[in-house]
């Protein structure tokens, strides 16, 4: 994981994210591109939200899925780099105050492994080409 930040977090200046029904939905408010990650991708996103160091994510994944530690590390590095490239996350070297735990492994049977993937949807970006979003608008307090 050479050159990769030890931790990453949501780039909340430019993106929003939500996990629903085991699927992570992410929206880049600047580019208008939105994304989904299901399965192992959603697990990695939940680990990012929990402040898990990137180097420990592989152990979490390998504890629950039928994948070697090495392969999990390779796949995690690839998806984290993609998240960084898409400006959905930023490096965060502040240690999390929340203890993290491996993904629940159930009764010891490992889940089938599918490599995490970041699915990108660019259809909104085309619509916004002439009318781009307004980053920073949410800095204003809209509540009464």
């Amino acid at each position: 994981m050479e050159g990769l930040a030890s931790r990453v977090r949501l780039n909340d200046q430019e993106a929003v994210a939500k996990i629903i029904d085991g699927e992570a939905i992410l929206i880049n408010l600047v580019s208008g591109v939105y994304y989904s990650m299901d399965g192992t991708g959603a697990v990695i996103w939940s680990l990012i939200q929990a402040g898990e160091p990137v180097e420990r994510m592989a152990a979490s994944l390998a504890a629950s899925y039928d994948v070697t530690l090495e392969q999990a590390a390779i796949d995690i590095e690839a998806v984290v780099r993609e998240l960084l490239e898409q400006r959905l996350v930023v490096p965060d070297d502040v240690p999390s105050s929340f203890p993290t735990a491996p993904v629940a492994a159930g009764n010891g049977t490992k889940l089938p492994y599918v490599a995490p993937a970041l699915n990108a949807y660019t259809d909104m970006g085309d619509l916004l080409a002439l009318d781009p979003p307004v980053p920073g608008f949410n800095d204003i307090s809209w509540e009464k």
Binding site: D12, V16, A17, K18, L29, L128, P133, V134, N138
Partner: peptide
Amino acid sequence: LQLLPRGGRREL
């Protein structure tokens, strides 16, 4: 992305 005011975390 398309409505004003633009949404954020709370809207999501």
